[in-house]
């Protein structure tokens, strides 16, 4: 009888520890998502360029958007994001601090052509394989950093086919880099990895 009680207590303690590990505060949550060891951010490295693909859970998007915005309606935003999936595809040259758009551009025209590609055409070179479906972007935005830093970012969103409200299948995003001729850049995110994302503890505190 005593042994049984001890066993039950041990199981409860283990479960409690497990729950703690899977619930993070806002700062920890953002760090967790951005830490490549957690497989939500993947890096693809070439000789002189690097691409980072960041999967963005809804809570992560909400936390970043709500920073310094007291009027932000978190619950409404989370509801809006249902049925979609979002990624950041960032890229930079590794041999310079200059933006990849500017580096090696022989003229202003060439810079403009590069910028035009990212503003208007790059979305056509991005697809997401979700389970057995191949999805085209439903939303695309190029975050032009105006050469302030080396990293440029494409923000891309997809709408799930069917009634999936959040990602529950394996996903693979791919981008065909026609501009810098790096071939096809892919990043896979397993359903298990997504399922293992910790819960967000309290959405009222500032990060």
């Amino acid at each position: 009888m005593k042994a049984n009680k001890l066993f039950i207590a041990a199981v409860i303690a283990l479960l409690a520890m497990g729950c703690n590990r899977h619930s993070l505060n806002q700062t920890e949550y953002v760090r967790y998502v951005q830490n490549d060891k957690n497989h939500l951010k993947k890096a693809v490295k070439m000789q002189d360029m690097e691409f980072d693909i960041q999967y963005k859970p809804y809570e992560y998007i909400m936390l970043l958007e709500s920073r310094n915005n007291p009027a932000y309606d978190k619950a409404k935003r989370l509801k809006q994001l249902e049925g979609t999936v979002w990624f950041n595809i960032s890229f930079k040259k590794t041999n310079t601090e200059m933006s990849a758009l500017k580096e090696g551009a022989a003229s202003l025209d060439e810079y403009d052509q590069r910028l035009n590609y990212f503003l208007n055409y790059a979305a056509k070179d991005i697809v997401l394989v979700y389970g057995g479906d191949t999805l085209k972007p439903a939303s695309y935005l190029f975050e032009n950093n105006y050469n302030i830093g080396p990293e440029e970012t494409m923000v891309v969103g997809f709408i799930f086919p069917g009634k999936d409200q959040k990602p529950i299948k394996d996903m693979q995003i791919s981008y065909y880099d026609r501009l810098f001729h790096n071939g096809i850049i892919k990043a896979s995110f397993s359903a298990a990895t997504i399922k293992d994302i910790p819960n967000l503890l309290n959405t009222n505190n500032k990060i």
Partner: peptide
């Protein structure tokens, strides 16, 4: 050829 070796070398 160029794109593939660019990726394979590293």
């Amino acid at each position: 050829n160029q794109e593939v070796w660019k990726r394979l070398n590293p």
